[in-house]
């Protein structure tokens, strides 16, 4: 099994998240994380899906995803050629305040809230960075934590939306000639 990060552009229509989730469920694909949000185009949302698959199954997952009518483009985000980020909010005990502060500094994290007996820390970074921070904080007494799904963006000038059919100048318009059109 190996982990892959897919960036998926989808039409921003109701039910599209359910379609993707339903597809993964019925095809028995393992999702490690899923993040969805708006893009520069209000009609398009972007999903970042981290999946665990074996070898050539990745191509199969991408083909099956692409069969969903609302899916516009899919691209695998490679470790070297894309920026990967996760967001973490974690609440730790005040008991070891000095050590916590040291860890926060070392991991370039931020204190976003302080209460009587706890400190809330925000951090973002690659998965390994977040995992390292969590490992360091665990002995300090983690009270609660929440993590976002991973998001990723390709480095350089390229944009996934450039690779959609319309951006390549390929017509996606189909003339509606009743009947004749349905004869295949």
């Amino acid at each position: 099994m190996s982990q892959h990060t897919l960036a998926v552009l989808v039409e921003n229509s109701s039910g599209v998240l359910a379609r993707v989730a339903s597809l993964f469920s019925r095809r028995a694909y393992n999702i490690d994380s899923l993040a969805v949000g708006p893009t520069e185009d209000p009609n398009i949302s972007r999903m970042t899906i981290v999946i665990n698959v074996e070898g050539h199954a990745l191509e199969q997952v991408m083909s099956q995803l692409y069969k969903l009518i609302n899916v516009i483009a899919i691209s695998e985000m490679q470790t070297n050629s894309a920026v990967h980020r996760e967001l973490l909010l974690v609440k730790v005990s005040q008991d070891h305040r000095e050590k916590v502060m040291e860890i926060v500094e070392r991991y370039a994290a931020k204190i976003v809230d302080e209460a009587e007996s706890s400190i809330t820390i925000e951090a973002s970074g690659e998965s390994a960075h977040i995992a390292g921070l969590l490992e360091a904080l665990t002995p300090m007494g983690i009270k609660e934590l929440v993590q976002s799904g991973l998001i990723a963006l390709e480095r350089g000038d390229a944009a996934l939306s450039d690779r959609t059919l319309s951006a390549q100048g390929i017509s996606t318009t189909h003339s509606l000639i009743p009947q004749a059109d349905y004869q295949n």
């Binding site: 552009l9 039409e11 398009i44 692409y66 009518i69 609302n70 899916v71 516009i72 483009a73 959609t164 059919l165 319309s166 390929i170 996606t172 318009t173 189909h174 003339s175 509606l176």
Partner: peptide
């Protein structure tokens, strides 16, 4: 208003 053309961003 029956559409004269159909456009899909992805389905092709």
């Amino acid at each position: 208003n029956y559409p004269k053309n159909i456009e899909f961003a992805g389905y092709k």
